[in-house]
Design a protein around this nucleic acid. Structure first.
Lengths: 242, 242, 242, 242
DNA sequence: AATGAATGAGAGTTCATTCAT
DNA sequence: GATGAATGAACTCTCATTCAT
């Protein structure tokens, strides 16, 4: 009944925020990009409900009309943002994983990327881990989908590790979910407490998690990871245009 | 900011919802209790923001006036509810822990109670794990406090386990937080997926968590726990009046 | 899901605007009455769409909250108003009819009351005949219902007139509808042209309509009607204001 | 008020919609024609206010820019449409009248054309009789102008009928207005009720109206009219599409 | 002639909260 | 203690209109 809007393409151009956006011509759809950036800032700063569409419009220097031209609703821009941020994280993980050989090393690398990304992009972490929670069935489903995808990556490599004989046979689904939960909790607390380096907890966490899957002491990737820490995969507060 | 009312005892711990309430004369402050029950139902069903004070008033068969007589704001009743539900959970944990001797056994017992409680009281789980997230600094602090208290209990007994020599020395703070996160994730997914028995995952989870602290294979409390499962500590959907 | 509102009782207290309201304690629901009065003024002055809820609120010296406390929507207050005005008109007609004996005289009396009422209450006429048109299926149905009821009264008495032998057998349904349409057209034009006395056209109209049903020259009620004109049944701009 | 554009020829009478459009090269101003057609459909389907310019643009497969190139505003296209549809009706009436000799026969022919046209073109009827009502002074004036023109035609021939001696002297202005109103009411109800043949009521209506002007039983044109019914002057749903 | 991105005033509605009774 | 009418700020969303291309 209402004319279709050309936005809300949940699939399309997934990472409008993040790396790929850095590469693509930044002038592609500048208004839409500005809105997404502003939305990220505002949602991270005030939370979903306290963020008014007017706030986003003001922060983006565009207009209400532009907002609703590109996004059919406040929820729609939030979903788009979740997708973009989730994709940004996943891309980082995939890249880190690709650099490693062994299944365990891959899984450790993923772990490191998550902490690095959270530390470099508090806004991303806050939006995905805190502000996206409890927003109703639709957004909850989206959020769980992201968790599920991330846990899926971990699980896949845990399965390989079992095949490789690096770790004993086990319930890798549960292990992957538990890892995700552990990361979630650590990052959430770090966000709330607002001090200290999140990366500082990586070694202890790595030990804990490797132990949990029966791989204690076998972590052969330590050297590599510390390199990673020195040259983080996601620049601080980078990745969204600029 | 707003004139304080005698009803906003944020500290409470008065578990007006839960066990003790079952014991105390149910007619004590029936209006207040009705409001809290209704609030629990409504918040669990619709979430914090979608739940209108009018909804709670309607569900409680009381009045707006009564609501604001007992609670200074919507947020206040939510905090009271969080406190009550957190206390209910903690009470269950303390009781379970008291029944066990060894530090490790205590920690396992706590674990079991959490899953049992979540299963028996979806509303409680939903409110504490989902609906209480992302409601702003004040409520976030409250939520983290509950997490912290729970993690504190676990940590305390992990420390004892180290002293006892049951597990090697380690970063017990991180372990406790990671445990909390793992539980959170498992329960949250179970809530969303809505099917299956949560308790069914307990054995695998126990193995996973014990391994994570270097206690693999030492779990001597298996027999006990199964008893616990047969006589759950929290009755399904019990504890909040009705 | 939403608590029922005690207003929007389409049936109840039908003529809150008009005669009965004059009789009932005026302090009954003063806010609601003020809103209805204001709505009548504003709708008559600006039309349905151009009338903002804010206008009604401002004119009524109440508040948006009060508005939505008593009426679930802008459309709802308009419907209530249509009902009230329709009832006011009907009451006038019934009263006039009751005073006459012969079927034809009754029908003529009804005719007179309509013109009198329109002249005394331009706002009523404007709302029922102009502003209520083209507002969508729901309101259109309501509007037609009022027309139908009015035509029904006329038809009933035309049937009696046929039985009495005052007029020849004929399609009284069509005649009644045509009369309603003729009145509608005359009043609508008078509203638009804004000058002249509507009542001045009554004699010609009466002749025309009586002729149309084959009753030419038999109008025995002329004397009476002129009395009616001298003591109008509806006071100018009375009945809702007070 | 707003800079005049060359497309707002409010006078028009250019029946871009309707017969003449069928004759003129259909490719003359195809965009404008498409817009008018779409506007007719959309206004008839949703009503003036619910019809968004975007709807018209979408239905016409053109663009917002094209819309405002040809019409200065939403109201302007509606006025153009009213003019076109009014002209279409008038043309039909004039043609029918031209075929008759006697004044009364002419007037009866006009009557028949109106019912035929309404039946063949519900959209036209809906727009002129329902959706055009209550749209503010400007459009109200336009609407009354159309009514007045139509009533004028009837009146003129009633006057002739008086001169001819076919009917007694009378207030032909009032009679003409009443006729218009009666037709309006009948068609409006038929539109709302959506069933039955409008033409079926023509005989009764003709009798009623002839009686009303004192011409009962004199209708000499019955034979002719039935011809007309067999070969309707306006093809069903024709005249605007193509 | 034609496009559609952009504008922004303004709409209806919600709802936490107050307060006279 | 309890009621519910009343308040009004704030919200999301719509849509006629403009204008650079």
């Amino acid at each position: 009944m209402r004319p279709t809007r050309r936005s809300d393409r949940a699939d399309v151009r997934r990472p409008e925020v993040g790396r790929i956006a850095e590469i693509r011509s930044a002038a592609d759809t500048p208004t839409r990009d500005r809105l997404l950036e502003a939305a990220m800032d505002v949602f991270a700063a005030k939370g979903y409900h306290a963020a008014a569409v007017d706030d986003i419009v003001a922060a983006s220097q565009t207009s209400k009309g532009a907002f609703y031209h590109y996004f059919s609703s406040k929820q729609a821009i939030f979903v788009t943002l979740m997708d973009a941020l989730g994709a940004l994280l996943e891309d980082g993980i995939e890249a880190a994983i690709a650099e490693e050989r062994g299944a365990l090393a891959k899984v450790e690398a993923a772990l490191g990327v998550v902490l690095e990304t959270a530390e470099a992009r508090r806004d991303l972490a806050r939006i995905l881990l805190i502000e996206a929670v409890g927003l109703g069935p639709e957004l909850e489903a989206k959020r769980l989908g992201i968790h599920r995808r991330f846990a899926g990556v971990i699980r896949r490599h845990l399965e390989r590790a079992v095949e490789e004989g690096s770790i004993p046979p086990q319930d890798t689904l549960l292990a992957a979910q538990a890892w995700v939960g552990a990361l979630n909790e650590l990052i959430t607390r770090w966000l709330a407490e607002g001090r200290g380096r999140l990366g500082a907890r990586l070694p202890a966490l790595r030990g804990f998690l490797l132990r949990s899957i029966g791989a204690a002491g076998r972590g052969a990737t330590r050297a590599r990871r510390s390199r990673g820490a020195a040259a983080p995969r996601v620049r601080r507060n980078a990745g969204v245009r600029r």
